[in-house]
């Protein structure tokens, strides 16, 4: 199974959040599993039109995903998915 890891910045809103295994074959499917494990977390990552938020990035095995709107990037069964925030502001 793939593994989904989260930025520690999400700990503030989801205390105790930790990596989860996932069976999905695309990022969109993975996010459905993330939501099931941590209700409302999806709304922190994507907007109501289903697009990745502007200051959120997702990596699959070290590479940034290409499809920020459709979230269709494929992954393999043992992929590592990192969900991180862009560092910005002050």
């Amino acid at each position: 199974m793939a593994t989904v890891k989260f930025t520690s910045a999400l700990e503030r809103f989801f205390p105790g959040i930790k990596e989860i295994p996932a069976r999905g074959t695309t990022i969109r499917e993975i996010l459905d599993e993330v939501e099931a494990g941590y209700p409302t977390l999806r709304s922190y990552l994507i907007d109501e039109q289903g697009r990745l938020r502007g200051h959120v990035n997702i990596f699959i095995d070290g590479g940034i995903i290409n499809d920020r709107e459709g979230l269709s990037d494929p992954l393999s069964q043992d992929s590592e998915i990192y969900i991180i925030q862009a560092l910005s502001g002050g």
């Binding site: 910045a9 809103f13 409302t40 709304s43 922190y44 990552l45 907007d47 109501e48 039109q49 289903g50 938020r53 200051h55 959120v56 925030q85 862009a86 910005s88 502001g89």
Partner: peptide, 28 residues
């Protein structure tokens, strides 16, 4: 939130505790 989008919270005890409610969202 700069990163996580617009959120909405309410408190019934003068800010001691807060509940997050679903933020207003535009239909798909």
């Amino acid at each position: 939130h700069g990163h996580w989008g617009v959120k909405l919270h309410r408190s019934k005890d003068r800010g001691k505790t807060w509940d997050e409610v679903a933020a207003p969202a535009y239909p798909q």
